[in-house]
């Protein structure tokens, strides 16, 4: 009987070198930039907020159907950021417009 040595070896090496505790997958560059902009949303000039809100909406829609912990986390963060951007847009309007 032929022993499948190579596949067994490959499986063994893969098993031993793969960490039991996975490192989280980094978000795509565009999403990373969006999260970076969110981190600075409090200091962003008011006129740049609508554009940020639009970019957030695009990514919120993209992630809506995605499953898994990464998508769950990014959705949470984008929703939180969107809420804050909307809050700023609402509260920084002149009182007469409200």
């Amino acid at each position: 009987m032929k022993t499948p040595t190579l596949p067994v070896l490959i499986s063994l090496v893969l098993t031993l070198t793969t960490p039991a505790w996975a490192a989280p997958q980094k978000p795509p560059a565009e999403l990373q930039q969006l999260l970076a902009d969110c981190s600075a949303a409090a200091s962003l000039p008011a006129e740049q907020l609508p554009q940020l809100a639009e970019r957030l909406q695009v990514w919120q829609q993209k992630l809506e159907q995605e499953a898994g912990p990464a998508a769950k986390l990014w959705r949470f963060r984008l929703n939180q950021c969107r809420g804050f951007v909307d809050y700023r847009l609402k509260t920084e309007q002149p009182k007469s417009k409200q």
């Binding site: 039991a20 505790w21 996975a22 490192a23 989280p24 898994g68 912990p69 990464a70 769950k72 986390l73």
Partner: peptide, 23 residues
């Protein structure tokens, strides 16, 4: 599964920053 994938508690409880649930 989220924690094992390195999210939530697993962001720090990974055996490097803090103890991992399985080591």
């Amino acid at each position: 599964a989220d924690i094992r994938a390195g999210f939530y508690c697993g962001a720090c409880h990974n055996g490097r920053t803090a103890f991992a649930p399985v080591g």
